[in-house]
């Protein structure tokens, strides 16, 4: 607790049989921060969060949440955390308001069922059985349950996985609101846009290790602020001349597109147009995109981050 961080994770390792799920994960989350663990499935995100929630024990390394050890602190620890697990399951025949009443009753400092149902748009489903809810409604209930004790720290493990884009946006709005309440939130995701949109800081996790950590902006800058220019031309070009254009650090092909990574976009564009004129080639389409976390992930791991 020397650093005063709300969540501290030091050098965690965890192995399931022959699989090394965590290979020395470390990071710290400050009070009121929304922190994202971004990585593909199997990167070790859930293992890390479940160790923080007290559901799993690490093989080595240590964690603390609000200065408490999840394994030994008992109820005191449970009072300060709220969690939406990767797959929150409730009995099929439990009604929405019963779930909130029941879980609320476990805490001395609880939020009212009515307030939570209103906030998460569940009033109409008040008397519905859990089994009758849609995926999005189940997820909203899981989030409401995570807040039932008005926790200081909220763990959201893949809160939008498997939801359609519209429901996903609804969940984003809810998380944005929590952010305003100054809750400390740890969120895991394999959706880049989720991490970019919601998180103050992001740790990119791959193969059980944190491979990059910073604000989305920092991560982009650290990647050399490389802007991606996708170019499609009437005639394909194979002589590699595009890679030698002014400002271009790298050139890749993806289907019919050429992806030019440039550090000086204006110069590259001018050089590109000149080059096309010289070659008597024609520009079909041009798209300039600022570096995204997706690019950074690709750059760091050589792989794309996909569902």
């Amino acid at each position: 607790m020397l650093s005063g961080a709300t969540i501290e994770v030091n050098n965690l390792t965890k192995r399931y049989g022959k699989v090394e799920a965590l290979r020395g994960v470390s990071f710290a989350v400050n009070e009121g921060e929304v922190f994202g663990l971004l990585g593909p499935n199997g990167a070790g995100k859930t293992s890390t969060v479940e160790i923080l929630e007290g559901l799993r024990t690490p093989d080595s390394g240590s964690v603390s949440v609000c200065g408490l050890d999840p394994q030994t602190s008992g109820a005191e620890f449970k009072y300060v955390i709220g969690a939406a697990l990767q797959a929150t399951a409730l009995p099929d025949k439990m009604r929405v308001h019963e779930a909130l009443d029941l879980f609320g009753s476990f805490y001395p400092n609880r939020r009212g069922t009515k307030e939570l149902m209103a906030r998460f748009g569940l009033e109409e489903k008040r008397n519905a059985f859990y089994s009758q809810l849609s995926g999005g409604q189940k997820q909203r209930l899981a989030l409401a349950m995570a807040l039932v004790n008005n926790p200081r720290v909220v763990f959201l493990d893949e809160p939008t996985a498997g939801l359609d884009p519209q429901v996903r946006r609804e969940i984003y709005d809810i998380i944005e609101e929590l952010k305003k309440e100054k809750k400390t939130i740890l969120i895991t995701t394999h959706y880049i846009e989720e991490a970019e949109k919601l998180c103050d800081r992001v740790a990119i996790v791959d193969h059980g290790k944190v491979i990059a950590l910073g604000t989305p902006r920092e991560l982009k800058q650290r990647s050399g602020a490389v802007t991606r220019i996708s170019v499609r031309m009437a005639r394909p070009e194979t002589n590699g001349a595009l890679g030698k254009l002014d400002g271009v650090t790298e050139c890749r092909t993806e289907a019919d597109d050429y992806l030019l990574y440039s550090t000086r976009v204006p110069r590259t564009i001018v050089a590109l147009v000149k080059h096309l004129e010289e070659q008597n080639n024609e520009l079909v389409s041009l798209e300039i995109s600022a570096p995204s976390l997706e690019d950074i992930f690709l750059e760091l791991t050589g792989r794309r981050l996909r569902d």
């Binding site: 929630e53 007290g54 559901l55 008992g74 109820a75 449970k78 009072y79 955390i81 969690a83 697990l85 797959a87 929150t88 399951a89 409730l90 009995p91 879980f103 476990f106 805490y107 349950m145």
Partner: peptide, 16 residues
């Protein structure tokens, strides 16, 4: 059934 369906682990993050 509760254990198999992962219902128990949700209770595990509460003071129960």
């Amino acid at each position: 059934t509760f254990r198999e369906q992962g219902i128990l682990r949700r209770f595990r993050v509460t003071p129960v």
